[in-house]
Amino acid sequence: MGLDIRFPIGMMFTLIGLLLTASGFFNPDKTSLGININLIWGVALLIFGILMWGSALRAKGK
């Protein structure tokens, strides 16, 4: 197939991760049970997204 689905999935979660990370970083008072969940989950999504589109690029390069 022409489209490797890992690429759009990775890009989308990278962008969402960036949004959440920025939100958590600039609004540290917005917590849940005392946890800055936006920052933590934002970074997690950022890493997941980069791994996804990174693996798509690697597969394309092979």
Binding site: I16, L19, N27, K30, S32, I37, N38
Partner: peptide
């Protein structure tokens, strides 16, 4: 109950 704005959107 748990989601602040941001996580709420997700």
């Amino acid at each position: 109950r748990y989601c602040p704005t941001g996580l709420l959107g997700l």
